[in-house]
């Protein structure tokens, strides 16, 4: 695998900052009461979506989860309509019907975030089946957390994908928390990658480092694209803000949360780029400023959109 050059490194960094800043803004507007329901942020986990999606084209597919903003953004979802959906406005991707847990853009292969833990894994596998059936050369990445690997459909899907050598990568971000329960009480294995042995497919584990993720995801996606079957790729990541925004994480304790926040995939990458002179502080300031302007614009756009009309509630239920 070719090492990413300077432009690519800056692109990775920019995408990670963008996801971080967008989710920070979401926490702010959610706390203001501008977004209904609940949201789950992936702050601390930005490396995985960026490292993975950098290998995908618009026609490739990803499936995402309730904690899926980062993946949708890394795959190229339009921030304005993303924001409109979260604000529950009719201009949103899902016509304001579904919110944060169900972002989807069919045209970009963002198959849809799933509110059922593990629910997207077999659906993504079906997209891989369709790609093989129609010989399109497309690949699919199913993203999920380690909690989902205890669901039956995880095992059912990997089994079927392995039998048929489907063009799919199962990318598990192991942040060690299944909702409010730590890994030790919901898994007998230490590494999710070990579950791959049951299906005779490769299982790979990688740290929360965008360059390492990029490298391992690249190998797995290449293998899938060449018709050599699926890989289970585990990324050891950190969840900073609990299961949902507003989760006080009393079950975890302040010290443990502070510890997790010290392992910052974005800050570590930033330090590396500064040390290697890929970026200067002024470049970082400029990148952050541009992203902030884009975010503010998207939030203003969403605020200006209209709520769905009750008369449209039934539209499209059936074709």
């Amino acid at each position: 695998m070719k090492k990413p050059g300077k432009a690519k490194l800056i692109e990775f960094y920019t995408k990670m900052v963008r996801i971080r800043k967008i989710e920070q803004k979401l926490m702010e507007v959610f706390s203001n009461g501008e977004i209904p329901g609940f949201i789950h942020v992936s702050i601390g986990q930005e490396a995985a979506p960026v490292g993975i999606c950098s290998h995908l084209s618009d026609s490739d597919y990803i499936s995402t989860t309730h904690r899926g903003h980062g993946h949708a953004l890394a795959k190229g979802i339009d921030l304005k309509f993303f924001m409109a959906e979260l604000f529950g406005k009719r201009e949103g991707y899902c016509l304001g019907r579904s919110g944060s847990m169900h972002l989807a853009d069919k045209n970009l292969g963002i198959m849809g975030a799933n509110g059922i833990v593990g629910g997207g894994i077999p659906i993504a596998t079906g997209a891989a089946l369709a790609a093989k059936y129609k010989k399109t050369g497309q690949v699919v990445v199913a993203t999920f957390g380690e909690g989902a690997t205890s669901e039956g459909v995880f095992h059912e899907a990997l089994n079927i994908a392995a039998i048929h050598k489907l063009p799919i990568v199962y990318a598990c971000e192991n942040n060690e928390w299944a909702e409010f329960s730590p890994q030790r009480i919901h898994m007998s294995v230490k590494d999710v990658k070990d579950r791959a042995a049951a299906y005779a497919i490769p299982g790979v584990s990688v740290s929360n480092d965008v360059l390492k993720i990029y490298e391992e995801a690249g190998k797995a996606i290449k293998m899938a694209r060449e018709g050599r079957g699926p890989t289970l790729l585990e990324i050891k990541s950190e969840r900073w803000y609990g299961h949902y925004v507003g989760d006080a994480q009393k079950y975890r304790g302040k010290e443990k949360v502070a510890e997790a926040m010290k392992k910052d995939c974005l800050l570590n990458f930033e330090k590396l780029l500064l040390k290697d002179n890929v970026l200067q502080r002024k470049d970082i300031d400029r990148i952050e400023k541009e992203i902030q302007a884009e975010i503010n614009e998207a939030v203003d756009f969403a605020r200006g959109c209209s709520p769905p009309d009750p008369s449209e509630m039934m539209d499209g239920l059936y074709v």
């Binding site: 894994i121 077999p122 993504a124 079906g126 089946l129 129609k134 059912e156 089994n159 079927i160 039998i163």
Partner: peptide, 26 residues
């Protein structure tokens, strides 16, 4: 075998797999 697909005993898995395929035009 590509069009008449025998599955393991996994109703949840293959029903959602069929859904994923349907969403991609099959």
């Amino acid at each position: 075998p590509e069009r008449v697909i025998d599955t393991p005993i996994s109703e949840a898995g293959f029903t959602s797999i069929a859904l994923g395929a349907a969403s991609c035009g099959l």
